Structures are given as structure tokens and as C-alpha cells.
Amino acid sequence: MAGKYLVFTCLFLAFLLSFTWYHLKDRDWGRYTAFPCQTENTGSNSIISHERLKDSPLHRMLYEKPDLLKLPRTDVMIATPWQAPIVWDGTYNLDILNELFHLRGARIGLSVFVIRKYKVFINDFLQSAEEFFMAGHKVHYYVFTDDVSGIPNITLKEGRNMEVVKISGYKRWQDITMRRMQLIRDYISQKLINEVDYLVCLDADLKFMDHIGVEILGDVFGVIHPGFFGESRTAFTHERRNYSAGYIPEDEGDFYYTGCFFGGTVEEVYKLTNFCHNAMMEDKAKNIEALWHDESYLNKYFLYHKPTKLLSPEYAWNDYYGSPVVVKRKRLVHVPKDYNAVRD
């Protein structure tokens, strides 16, 4: 009897091994044991080989050893309570980050909406972006506009390109700024998901004044509003009506985020814009709008879906707020303008 059980057990194990081998023999097990990246030529998943690591400048990059007993900045908060880094000047090594993102072959998209009179800003926006935005990396500009002829044909650096997308104009500036959430969401699912890995979303009335690079990139990031970074919760201009989808109680809120600059991986930006659009539609059905439109819904999203990286006010400065000592570099600034004129 024992012999029969032994034979049966052996046959069963042989069958199990054969079955497992048949179904798993074509699996790419290498992708589970090595770091996946985007190849620079195809954008498809590949494995970083030992030879490629040796060819990377990181292999013999010499830099000062990090000191666990010395903080890079002591005058500002550099991490949130949920351990997301807050990016200030002096808190990162851009040379290291550049090589890490080059190794991954990161493809970066930038979306900007140029509707009606805001076309007066787009030339300076693009020219300054070419000088200061993601230097040395692949960048794809997506310019959404109601006037294709109003978009300048500027000379782009190698590895950078621009696509102008025709969209409808709107009578109210509030509709323009809120509709972009739906348009970004839809364009991601239709096109961007196959073209870029990260998407940075910016307003057109901004100008790059200093370098902004891959230090900003992460799963999903927001920018701390320059007018509120030293204020209490009660000073935040959140939507306070509890029947709005953008409602945030006065005793909640981590930071106040500006609506002019946000981004992350295309998958996470899709989730963010989808939430904001649906919240707007929920309020529209009630015939209401949140106090600061898309910015209010963005703040609601970040309250309950914490950003994985925060950018300091250096990244969306407005000279109206002066020059506080902690803001050592004004990287992206709001262009002075007559709001009544450009929004008319």
C-alpha cells in the first residue's frame, strides 16, 4: 500500500512541475528581479543591465557624503507629517537626480492652456521654458488653444517638441480654468498615456526665471501657494460651504495649494483631474461653484489624497508678496497683469 502512495505522490509532483513550467516558461522573470525603466529609444519597458549601470555617470560621480546629523535646511519645513519631501533650494542634488531620470529615459509632458487674451503670455512662457524647464531632458509641450494662429513657432532644443491642440473658447474665464481638468483627463486617456511618463500642468501667465528640473517629479505633486505658506488654517481660502463638493472644514487642511501648477505621473494626474472634474459636475448640478473654482477642488483632492511631493513657493512666486528671506530663488513667477483686461 505504501508503495502505491509513493508512486501516486511522485506522479502528482511530476504533473505539478510540468504544469507550472508550461504556464510560466514564457514569463519575463527578469522584470521582477531588476529595476524596470523606460528605454531612451522606444519608451518600452526594459532592464537596466550591469553594463549600462557602469556607463552611467553615477558609477563614478563624486559628491559630498550625506550627513545624517546635518539637515540641508533648518529655516523651513522640508518634509510633511506623511513623509513627503518639500522641495526648497538646497535640499537636493540635481546632478544625481538628472542621472537617475536619464537612466530611466523619462519622458516629460507640459500642458498649458492659451485661451482668448491669454495668448499674449505664451511667447514668453515658451521661450523661458526652453531656457529653464527640464534642461537636458525630453519634453513634449501640449498647448491647448482656441486660436492656433496665435501660438508662436519657436525653435525648440533637441529632444523637445510641441503639439498645438485646438479647443473651444468659453465666455467666462472661470469656465476656461475649470474645463481644463476634463480636457487634461480626456487627453491623457486618448493620447498622453502612450507618449509621456510625467505630466506637468501650468498656467500660461507664468514665466520661468530660474531652473526647474526633475527635482519636482514624483507620483503626484502640488505647489504651496506663495500667499499662504506662513498662514494658519483659518486664513486659507478654502471652500467653506458644506454643500459644495469642494468643502473643507476650518479645522482641516495641511497647506493651501495653488491651482496654477501641479503634476505627476500621467496615471496620477488622470486621477486628480478626474476627481476635480467630477466634483465640478456635482456642484454644477446644484447650480453652485466652489469659491476658487478648480483650485478649490484641487485643494480638496490633496487633503484626502496626499501629494507625494510638495514644491515650495519658489515654484510659483508672485512679487506681490515681496521677497521673504526663506525664498532664496524665484523659479517661476506670475506675470504682472490687469486681470480685468485679460479676463474680459
Rank of each mutant, 00 (worst) to 15 (best):
M1W: 06
A2C: 11
A2S: 12
Y5L: 15
Y5E: 12
V7F: 08
F8D: 11
C10Q: 07
C10K: 07
L11M: 10
F15L: 05
L16I: 08
L16P: 01
L17P: 13
L17F: 07
T20F: 13
D26M: 04
D28R: 03
W29S: 02
W29M: 04
G30L: 00
A34V: 05
P36I: 07
Q38T: 01
Q38P: 00
T39N: 12
T39A: 12
S49P: 07
H50N: 11
E51I: 01
S56Q: 06
L58P: 06
H59Y: 02
M61W: 07
L62E: 15
Y63D: 13
E64M: 12
E64Y: 14
E64K: 15
K65I: 11
D67Y: 01
L68M: 02
L71C: 07
R73P: 12
T80S: 15
T80Y: 08
I86W: 04
V87Q: 06
D95K: 03
H102N: 15
H102S: 10
H102V: 06
A106V: 05
R107I: 00
G109A: 02
V112D: 03
I115N: 06
K117A: 14
K117L: 10
F121S: 02
N123V: 05
Q127F: 06
F132H: 14
F133K: 00
K138I: 07
K138P: 12
K138E: 14
H140K: 11
Y141I: 01
V143H: 04
V143P: 12
S149K: 15
S149R: 13
G150H: 11
I151K: 00
P152R: 00
I154H: 06
G159N: 05
V165M: 14
K166F: 13
I167M: 13
S168T: 08
R179M: 13
M181V: 01
M181K: 00
R185G: 03
Y187K: 07
I188A: 09
I193E: 00
V196G: 09
V196W: 09
Y198S: 09
Y198H: 13
L199I: 15
C201F: 09
L202P: 04
A204G: 10
L206P: 05
D210Q: 08
G213F: 06
V214E: 06
E215N: 07
L217I: 00
G218F: 02
V220K: 06
V220F: 09
F221E: 01
G227R: 02
E231I: 07
E239V: 10
N242K: 14
N242W: 15
S244P: 00
A245M: 03
G246A: 11
Y247R: 11
I248T: 14
E250A: 15
D254A: 05
Y256M: 01
Y256L: 02
T258P: 08
G259Q: 09
C260I: 10
F261W: 04
G263Y: 14
E267F: 06
K271N: 11
F275K: 02
C276F: 03
C276I: 08
C276M: 13
A279W: 09
M280H: 12
E282I: 02
A290G: 15
A290T: 12
A290Q: 12
W292A: 14
W292I: 09
E295P: 02
Y297K: 04
Y297P: 05
K300D: 04
L303I: 08
L310N: 00
P313T: 01
E314L: 00
Y315K: 02
W317K: 03
N318V: 09
V325R: 09
V327F: 11
K330Q: 05
H334N: 10
V335H: 04
Y339F: 13
